[in-house]
Design a protein around this nucleic acid. Structure first.
Lengths: 194, 194
DNA sequence: TCCGTTCTGTAGTGGACGCTACAGATGTGG
DNA sequence: CCACATCTGTAGCGTCCACTACAGAACGGA
């Protein structure tokens, strides 16, 4: 009971995500956030507590999409197909013209000013997550004999994470979807067999 | 004539570089910069004009080191060796424990707030430079028959740039030098021949 | 209809930011 | 030794930042 909320939580989160994505966590000002979200500061603070709280809510929403992507990737029958889905799908996502370039988790903060360390740490953790899930999947593949000999699951996972993060950087610099796909195909040459 | 400058320009630039590297362009405050450089704001402004002017001076100094690295890379006799030097050398640099992790050009600003676009553009340009020089080198290699058939010089250059940028991101997340070297070696499998 | 509760919009708050006015210090040229 | 030019340190400028006090509006319950 009480006066009902005049905005849709998911909708304003999507709009906030766009601002954080384009300007980074610290570069996104409350003035621009509230203007884009179409609400006033008190409403924002009542709903999310703080700028960091808002950002974490955005991050969680973003993480849902990533999680479903990773489930599709990890569900591929062979390790070679895991790699294909991961690289090609990431190129597709990083180059999606309907969204800001690259990846929110990378764009919104590689570095931070003093006091922003907790946000930077949260982002760093988010970046590590797909890599560790890939590693686990490749360890399983190795035990099943589904990994070329001489390939270390951890090194392969780290390499793939690096390539995808590099694609995000390229996208931020204006690379097109087709160019990102070329990067994915070059990376797939790492592993011509299978 | 007049009162002589009480600080060494290159020394304060190196110290400023460290701050920008760790906190990014916008995350580096004048207070921290002046404290680290050991000078007061008026001295800084007399010498560099503005925070952006200081950053550009830092960037130019950083670029000198990068340029000599790229000259060594591009001077390798075969394209395969160009790739080896670029990947292994970049892993070495990104993991250098004497400096902040990764690459200044990437750490100091993938995104920016409103008004910081000129800095972001300058950084984006700096990021493209090694890639275009690699492309030119690979085009030369192709004309000399020194490139495997089916490899596009532009795509190869972009791929390598992405891998190296990804290594920087990994370094920012705490990856060790040895782990970065593993990424380089994985990437070298792209091109087992030669 | 009135009450309690929750949200909304206006209009700020203190503080940190990039930057600079000013006066004193330190050098060179005459 | 003095006039002048340049740098240095103190102290503070206006502006923008994340954030909030407050009063009125919009609901459900009695």
């Amino acid at each position: 009971m009480g006066r009902p909320r005049a905005f849709d939580r998911d909708q304003v989160l999507d709009r906030a995500m766009d601002v954080f994505w384009r300007h980074g966590y610290e570069g996104a000002s409350l003035a621009e956030l509230t203007a884009t979200m179409g609400i006033n500061p008190p409403s924002l603070y009542a709903a999310f507590g703080s700028k960091e709280g808002l950002f974490r809510a955005v991050l969680e929403r973003y993480g849902q999409g990533r999680a479903s992507f990773m489930e599709d990737v990890l569900g591929a029958p062979t390790s070679r197909q895991v790699v294909e889905r991961f690289l090609r799908g990431s190129a597709e996502l990083a180059g999606d013209p309907r969204k800001p370039a690259g990846c929110l988790v990378l764009q919104s903060g590689l570095t931070c000013g003093v006091g922003g360390e907790s946000v930077a740490d949260a982002l760093s953790e988010q970046r590590r997550d797909p890599e560790s899930r890939l590693r686990v999947r490749f360890e399983q593949a190795r035990d099943e004999g589904d990994l070329p000999s001489g390939v270390d699951p951890a090194a392969l996972a780290r390499y793939l994470a690096a390539v995808v993060q590099g694609m995000s950087v390229q996208a931020a610099g204006g690379a097109t979807r087709a160019e990102l796909q070329q990067v994915a195909e070059m990376a797939l040459r790492t592993w011509p067999g299978n």
